[in-house]
Amino acid sequence: MPARPRASHARAAAAVAVLALAPACGIGFADDTSGGHDDLPTSGAGPFGRLPVDETTPADEPWLATDRTLDFTEPALVARAGGGFVYFVTRESPDLPVGDSEIWRGAIRDPRQLPDEPLAPAVIADQVWEEGHVAAPAVVDDGARLVMFYEGGLTTVSIGRAVSSDGGRTWQKDPAPVLVGARAPGVAFDGALWLAAFTRPGEDGIWLARSGDGVAWVVDAAPTLVPTGVEDSFERVAVGSPWLAWVVESTGRGHWAMWYAGLEKFPLEGDLPRPAVGYVASFDGMAWGRSGAPRPVLAAPAGAPAVLVSGPRATLLFDGPAGRRLAVGVATHP
């Protein structure tokens, strides 16, 4: 039965119609934003991209540590409580052929900004065995303090150990090296096992050593990673400068991750090498593998990687040529 005419009904119907049709007439919430890309998971295996140049920021992207007269190389980094990271670099001697090298420390919240704590010397070569040479730091946060493994010595290159309880500003060194005949360390700790990766003078490849306390080490009988010798491989003639991390994922499972520098060909005399960064990983520290074909995770020229995986982001520091000097740069994933 038809209803009696009622203006309120007509008004209600008109209101409903207007509300319903408004979006179709372009009165909706049209916008140009699109989502679905935020905070995707990553294991830190990259691929990494160098920080893009941004003229609007005070930073000199992609460089984090650069200088007109000094070389900065072989970085390391650890997360900083409260955000950002603490980083260490090798300050090579400005005097050739060889002078004292030092390990400097800085801290930064956002690599697109200026450092909160500018670079300053943190470790100098004050031990006899170091022979004026400290370099290539690897820093591990074991939960209570920072533990640094570093390269020292010239006639017998070795790896030394130092600890810091003030965020890396000051260090207490062990009196003697913990690994002799080894250099360029990368070290990680899974709560029970210390694992070190390093290279050895005069021998190819990246070697591993294991320890229960980070002081006494047992070196594997053979290198874990060797140059492939395969044509067009980014690691055909050399691998080195490993960085190790124990990455605990959201499922509670962890794995050992290793980033390293690979070299396709040796440079001509007077040229700089053009390494690229590779990646391997292992659940048990014994069997190491890649995902897919062996490709770099950061294109050349980039060497001496150091990586921090924090949630859905990974930050990789590398060294490479910046003008006439070597500098430490930043690459990220994603």
Binding site: S34, P47, G49, R295, P296, V297, L298, A299, H333
Partner: peptide, 16 residues
């Protein structure tokens, strides 16, 4: 259009 760290072509694209 860009490349990832391994030099592989990769693209992020979106059309509305």
């Amino acid at each position: 259009v860009t490349t990832d760290g391994s030099g592989r072509f990769t693209t992020q694209s979106e059309q509305r």
